[in-house]
Design a protein around this nucleic acid. Structure first.
Lengths: 183, 183
DNA sequence: GTCTATAATTCGATAGAC
DNA sequence: GTCTATCGAATTATAGAC
């Protein structure tokens, strides 16, 4: 079958994202991705050069943190948790990054920089505690990533059955305390 | 060099645990483990049969949860957090399991059963909320595993510099609320 | 008990025909 | 733009000499 260049590229990228999300970087093979996309493995190399560059293209990501200035101070934790849940379920990129970061130092570094660049400023602004903003952001990340790990990656059954609202009710106050409790 | 059988086996196991902890199951090769142990790769096969059985031997694990009946009700969260931190730093097995579970369904299942068999009863007993004990245990696991993920695997710098006591102070009340807040 | 040699796969990557 | 064919490297695992 003959296709336009962008179509093939998009097909490959979609298949790559699914495979990387399901298997992580190492176990996701170019051959499997190509098979999913219904094309020849060599096409993947043609369009993306190397497996590493394919991964980079498949793992483009932005936390898209909302503007919290208009959110009432007491609702910051719940708002953040709800946003992350939404972000996680709308976009498999976070699963890709998490599944890969645990055994790939370069991707781990990307996770660190994503959270430090985007979450630290929020903690600094909300808490007014600029000295400890990095610690606060790291604590919030530990709870948010831990929930995602258990719910989406390890698939603990009880976390899977909890509704979004239940999770917001339980985790909201925790994140609230981490990023906004008085210094 | 000539050695006794148990010595060689112990050498292999120690090297395997280090490699599995550092690299996860896939990236840790039998060749590298053998090189670390200063022996020939075929010896590893001789003593353990397959890579999978070597991993099983290297990943034997027990949470060793302390008896909490004598702990004052308000200290349960802090006690649990302190115990897990200690457990994590004394024994690299949890890092091995975490690094591998994210891309290996069999190991993920082991993580689930470890936490469900050992943490759920604690939550049931402490909270008296038997109906929701699984949810409570899962929530506690999400914070505890998330902290371990960020501190020991992703190596967020600010979590690395925090002392054990600081972590207990921050996480203790959170775990306390998860496992012990009134139903 | 230890090692050499090698079989059998699998993977990323390349060259080149059509 | 797509595919066939294949290279070269790495890996688990086995057979057998000493």
């Amino acid at each position: 079958m003959r296709r336009r260049s962008e179509d093939t590229k998009a097909l490959i990228l979609a298949a790559a994202r699914e495979r990387f999300a399901a298997d992580g970087y190492d176990r996701a093979t170019i051959r499997a991705i190509a098979a999913d996309a219904g094309i020849d493995p060599s096409m993947v190399m043609r369009y993306f050069g190397t497996k590493e560059r394919l991964f980079a293209a498949a793992a483009e990501f932005d936390l898209e943190l909302p503007d919290l200035t208009s959110v009432p101070g007491d609702d910051v934790g719940a708002t953040l948790v709800a946003h992350f849940l939404d972000r996680w379920e709308r976009d498999e990129t976070l699963v890709i990054l998490l599944r890969t970061a645990v055994t790939n130092e370069a991707v781990a570094e990307r996770m660190r920089s994503i959270f430090s660049a985007q979450l630290v400023p929020v903690a600094a602004k909300i808490s007014g505690d600029h000295a400890a903003a990095r610690k606060r952001a790291a604590l919030a990340a530990s709870q948010i990533l831990g929930m995602a790990l258990c719910r989406y990656v390890l698939a603990l059954p009880s976390l899977g059955t909890m509704t979004r609202q239940e999770l917001v009710d339980w985790l909201g106050p925790v994140v609230q305390r981490y990023v906004a409790s008085p210094a």
